[in-house]
Amino acid sequence: MASQGTKRSYEQMETDGERQNATEIRASVGKMIDGIGRFYIQMCTELKLSDYEGRLIQNSLTIERMVLSAFDERRNKYLEEHPSAGKDPKKTGGPIYKRVDRKWMRELVLYDKEEIRRIWRQANNGDDATAGLTHMMIWHSNLNDTTYQRTRALVRTGMDPRMCSLMQGSTLPRRSGAAGAAVKGVGTMVMELIRMIKRGINDRNFWRGENGRKTRSAYERMCNILKGKFQTAAQRAMMDQVRESRNPGNAEIEDLIFLARSALILRGSVAHKSCLPACVYGPAVASGYDFEKEGYSLVGIDPFKLLQNSQVYSLIRPNENPAHKSQLVWMACNSAAFEDLRVLSFIRGTKVSPRGKLSTRGVQIASNENMDAMESSTLELRSRYWAIRTRSGGNTNQQRASAGQISVQPAFSVQRNLPFDKPTIMAAFTGNTEGRTSDMRAEIIRMMEGAKPEEMSFQGRGVFELSDERAANPIVPSFDMSNEGSYFFGDNAEEYDN
């Protein structure tokens, strides 16, 4: 993207840094990872977990959730003011799984939030270390993106479920800051804005008074975040219109849905970061690795190297396929839920299948599930090659597409044709070009129609051997075009429920 120079890199967003050079960025990201790792080690000690239990991804998720809940100030305040039966607002906890007599047992633990905050700050040299908290939120978000298709949420806001490739980060909490905003897809931002506008339509006082002023500035800020994701002048001009509207209503909703559809071809720039579970960072720190000293990046080879040398386990339900569970977590670790499966298959070195073909449910185990038949197995999170994460949407291309997802959002900077089903997408653009945004709409449609099938995206960008740390010898991959490109292809993934 041309304006790259004016933006802070995501590592800076990730670490609240002012302008830093590459070495400083690597050190501050490393410091953040160190903090998460030290916190995780301490929690495993508190909970008396064995090494194996500490490497269980379900335990990692519970521990991450506990610290996120302990620092969720708004919710904590709300819980104190609106006490609900049987919930102690000062405590947080969740299921911890232990191996007892050759069987997995679930144990519900409860801790004072104050105590968890103390352990977290102690692991982070006394700081609140917001960057580390956001990092864990993005890992949870990436896992949700890989596990669930947001059909219901899309339909509720009037969008087409086939636009799911635009929904990265749709389950990120509001408090995820600049680093969170960077990884949100165009569809996620559109959905947040539509929800806001709908509230304004239904509630006369939404934009009024002292609160209304705050609401208005939040609305304009979200519009600017979305505008910054678009790469064409016409899309940005249309966002200006939406932002400046005196009284946002149905016309703005129409414009936003139009823009979301246009992003299936004229893709937005959305950041991709490899955020790993805390149970990967903990053992690495415990083994003596100093992330701050060595430096770390979320968008280069580092996460690949770390996963190459990590042992992570997962509980497996009786009829689940461990290899499929591994694929789910591998995609989440690489922030690749909406990437082209052919690119992923090449990088991973084994075939990556669409969601609907995987015999696996989510990673988390519900409290009512029976533990008797639970097994555990090693997650295979290694890769054959590594590639640089991208934040450009890439230019655009036609490809055989599917009944489910009709476009992709690249996660890796790797040369390819970008699949999208042009006739299906263009069919949504018939007729409606009147109104105050008509010239911009016409211009956007013209650009979409001009998108050429034979153009290559990320020209000359390749993948790298894991021994090639400096990215000196790019390998331009070859793809098996007979395979499906979309992950949520004609899909039956479970729906995400809060």
Rank of each mutant, 00 (worst) to 15 (best):
Q4Y: 15
R8I: 00
Q12G: 02
Q12S: 12
E18G: 07
R19D: 09
T23C: 11
E24L: 06
S28W: 01
I41Y: 09
C44R: 13
E46H: 06
L47R: 14
S50V: 05
S60I: 14
H82N: 09
S84F: 00
A85I: 11
Y97S: 05
D101P: 14
R102H: 12
D112M: 06
D112W: 07
A131L: 02
N142G: 10
T146E: 01
T146A: 15
R156W: 05
M159H: 05
R162Q: 05
S165C: 13
R174V: 04
R175Q: 02
R175D: 09
S176L: 02
G177A: 03
A178D: 12
A181G: 13
G187C: 11
T188N: 07
M189F: 02
M191N: 07
R199V: 13
N202A: 11
F206S: 10
W207H: 02
R213T: 11
K214F: 09
Y219W: 12
L226D: 10
Q231S: 10
A234E: 06
Q235S: 07
R236L: 02
M238Y: 01
Q241M: 08
S245P: 15
G249E: 06
L256K: 03
F258C: 13
R261V: 04
K273Y: 05
V285G: 09
A286T: 06
E292S: 09
D302H: 14
L307H: 05
Q308P: 00
S314F: 08
P322D: 12
K325F: 08
L328A: 05
L344P: 08
S345L: 06
K351F: 15
P354T: 06
K357I: 09
I365K: 05
D372K: 03
T378E: 04
L379R: 02
L379Q: 05
Y385H: 05
G393S: 15
N395L: 00
N395M: 04
G404D: 10
S407N: 14
D421L: 14
P423Y: 08
I425T: 15
T433H: 08
G435S: 09
R436P: 07
S438T: 03
E443Y: 03
I444S: 03
I445C: 15
M448L: 13
G450M: 11
K452F: 14
G460R: 15
V463I: 15
E465S: 00
D468T: 15
V476L: 07
F488V: 05
F489K: 03
F489M: 13
N492A: 10
E494T: 09
E494P: 11
